[in-house]
Design a protein around this nucleic acid. Structure first.
Lengths: 245, 245
DNA sequence: CCAAAAGTGTTACCTATACACCCATGA
DNA sequence: TCATGGGTGTATAGGTAACACTTTTGG
């Protein structure tokens, strides 16, 4: 969506002329990462946005995106897009939805194929920010350009939905993690607290994780054991296409 | 996808030229309905396909589809598409996935936004067939044009997935139905038999159905009570966007 | 020794499943 | 009256949620 104004026919305003043109095709991404909250210090969901430097919606924040590069598949285009804006490689990347309402953009008609991504929290700290790229808390966003508020809401809904099942939480953590950290991910995303005892048991039973010999040092209390995720991601439990064409 | 060959630039074969053109945007639909099996008579899943009358894949069967009409939203375009080929109105219509691999079509690059639909079985019997439009059993399809076999497989996977939760089964039945008919839908889609006693209880507890005063006559045995579905569809339990932009 | 998180055990409850059983109807 | 699907009851197993309890560390 960002960069759409550089596409052909973008300056056409007349309605009848506009309807005769083919719709433009864009790729956007909703990128989630965990960052410590300013006040509580607990991990919370954040996402990077890009400030628009042209009309329409000049000066407003928008999802990173751009036109579909000819040589890329949809997935590759989304990954490239993500690398360009944040400099990060996603640990998880999946198609969210194709948005194609008639009046999403005031100038030309645009169909946006939106992907959503998760980034490891260890990497997310290195993500570059600038005047035009900043991270925001996923809840309580200001008004965004185009229909991007709706898109973020939908991405959040999908994330929460997947979290209830799948082994998606590990994509927000580093290679090694404590079980309490996994629980914090769930609590941050689903926005409710969970019983540590039961949570631990359900994890060790269902998810494919293996204990390491290491323990996380530096805490105030008993050092917790570190675990490693061993699940093959191709075994998608729910919500993912069998193959990603 | 069908009808793609009528789009501009379709005859361009040279690779470098081809890469400079914008990808074409198409809408296709996977339409499911229940029809009695030839041998057992039990309801099974069928879908309508269209015979291609031009290259590429001339003579092969393909999903109904066509280019995105300018004046339609994605959803409207899918619905129109469905009406054009089968003459039916869907009782359920949802976006499936956007397929955008580089080599899906041998001529021009095509990005297809695919929808999937359910049609009431009472209506499905009226669906028109012709030389170029026929219904096939959803399992054991022959080789289809383009990547349409994969698309159908994915649509089946999504249908089964939704069936496990949601109140989607009713969209394959008429307004009034017996509980055994609902069970037959589940058995046909999930391809396994279920305990009638337990199934009935779970339905009456979870799903929003209300008993009518009518009973289905004409059977060989005790006439079963007819029920009616009362669930609001906006209360989507899983797998549906909160709003469909 | 104390506080607090890590980690284990125990119990009540809820729901899926299996299956025995009665009911109502057509033939 | 018999066969058959409609419909109800009930016992059992497995899993979740709540919470008491033990363990291990830093201060």
């Amino acid at each position: 969506m960002q960069g759409m104004d550089r596409m052909p026919f973008a300056s056409v305003a007349n309605v009848s002329e506009r309807m005769a043109l083919p719709p433009a095709l864009a790729i956007s991404t909703v990128i989630f990462a965990l960052r410590p909250s300013e006040k509580s210090g607990r991990p919370t969901l954040w996402l990077p946005l890009v400030k628009r430097i042209r009309e329409p919606f000049k000066g407003m924040w928008a999802l990173p995106g751009g036109p579909l590069t000819q040589a890329d598949s949809l997935l590759d285009a989304a990954a490239r897009n993500l690398a360009d804006t944040t400099g990060l490689a996603p640990s998880y990347l999946e198609q969210l939805y194709a948005f194609g309402g008639l009046h999403r953009s005031p100038s030309q008609r645009v169909v946006s194929i939106v992907y959503w991504a998760l980034v490891q929290s260890t990497e997310a700290e290195l993500a570059r920010e600038s005047e035009n790229v900043q991270w925001f808390r996923a809840d309580g966003l200001a008004e965004l350009a185009f229909d991007h508020n709706e898109i973020v809401e939908y991405a959040l809904w999908r994330l929460r939905n997947k979290m209830e099942y799948g082994s998606i939480a590990y994509h927000l953590l580093g290679e090694k993690f404590t079980l309490a950290q996994v629980r914090e991910v769930y609590e941050a995303v689903l926005n409710r607290s969970m019983d540590p005892a039961n949570f631990r048991r359900q994890l060790k039973q269902a998810a494919r994780i293996e204990p390491t010999d290491e323990f996380l040092q530096g805490g105030k209390h008993r050092p917790p054991r570190l675990y490693r995720y061993t699940g093959n991601d191709d075994a998608a439990p729910s919500g993912t296409p069998p193959s990603r064409p």
